[in-house]
Design a protein around this nucleic acid. Structure first.
Lengths: 190, 190
DNA sequence: AATTTTTTGGGACAAATGTCCTCTAAATCG
DNA sequence: CGATTTAGAGGACATTTGTCCCAAAAAATT
């Protein structure tokens, strides 16, 4: 996590050290939850190793994958963390996963000490926004097969670990349709 | 704009006053642009009255509406403002529109004077994120007719001013399909 | 290792959505 | 005001995507 913080060029080495006492190490086994829908999210996790999936549930009970989080990035039920409202998302480990967890209240305490922690939060929110804007664009202008193709080229090897049914709902389509898309891509190669 | 700032409960009255000298009033006639794609966005606009539309262009030349901005809210080519990269979006007035425009560099100067301007930016980024998350959810789990219905109930009267073709691409569908959806809604009423 | 559960691929058919085009109404412009 | 452009509805047909289903393969469990 410290390396991630360094990469933002916001913090002194002392500030980065000062974070240490607030980080709690946590291990999730496959299938364990970081947060369940309906709870209010009060923490931010850094994925040291492993893979997380966020999903929510439609009225009819169908699970829809909102996003994945790979190694060396941050994960939280962001809208709940921001608004203080119950999380619509469940966050679950797809494989055994090692985390460093920071409590929101501790981040707020750090923010009293140095403005840089506020700048970090501003930066992260902006980054997240830019990501989602790209995703909106892809829903508006691409068909499912193109979105899948983009995803494959953006996240080549991580995707191997993700069951196809999760990828399908992430793309906004059914398993059946993703299966068809994959078949068509194979045929094009031959 | 001052009323909008007050609503965040971040600023003293003096701070709100201090913004005044940096705001430039601007009027856009119908069809005029606030920013064109390819330019780097360096300003934030408050819509005093009127209506803006942001859109980008597909490779085949088709225009896709990204969002609308109504009265008493802020508008900017946000991803470009954040990243400093050329904007993918065009922002255009759909009707005669009165704006207050703040330069990014002036906001940065204000941010040197009071941390509250940074907190404002953090807050705005977070708000934007929450909006987009909702929109992603709707693309993933709703069909076009449901997205249209939601839009109608969220923005009842503003929508009257917006040509249907713009609504269609905002929803991620064609004009033809939106026409069908509207017809079906009428039939259900009768 | 055997059993059970989950995941995947795909057939058959249905529904949603797109493409192309035409006609009419409405808005814009000279 | 008349001429021209733009927006909207919708027919006919094509493509994309969904639903329901089943069987094989893979993974998890006992």
């Amino acid at each position: 996590m410290q390396n991630l913080l360094r990469s933002y060029h916001l913090f002194s080495e002392a500030e980065i050290e000062s974070l240490g006492p607030y980080l709690r190490s946590r291990r999730l086994e496959k299938g364990d939850y970081l947060i369940k829908a309906g709870k209010i999210c009060t923490e931010i996790a850094f994925v040291q190793s492993g893979l997380l999936r966020s999903y929510y549930t439609k009225d009819d009970g169908e699970e829809i994958t909102y996003c994945f989080t790979f190694e060396n990035t941050l994960m939280t039920a962001y809208s709940s963390l921001i608004t203080g409202l119950p999380s619509p998302e469940n966050i679950q480990a797809l494989v055994p996963t090692e985390l460093w967890v920071l409590q929101k209240r501790d981040l707020e305490a750090l923010s009293q000490q140095s403005i840089n922690w506020i700048l970090l939060q501003k930066h992260l929110a902006e980054q997240q926004y830019v990501e989602l804007e790209k995703r909106i664009f892809s829903y508006q202008k691409e068909k499912a097969s193109e979105r899948y193709r983009d995803l494959l080229s953006a996240q080549p090897h991580y995707l191997q670990q993700i069951p196809l049914q999760y990828l399908a709902s992430y793309l906004g389509i059914t398993r059946r349709h993703l299966s068809r898309i994959r078949r068509e891509m194979l045929e094009r190669v031959n």
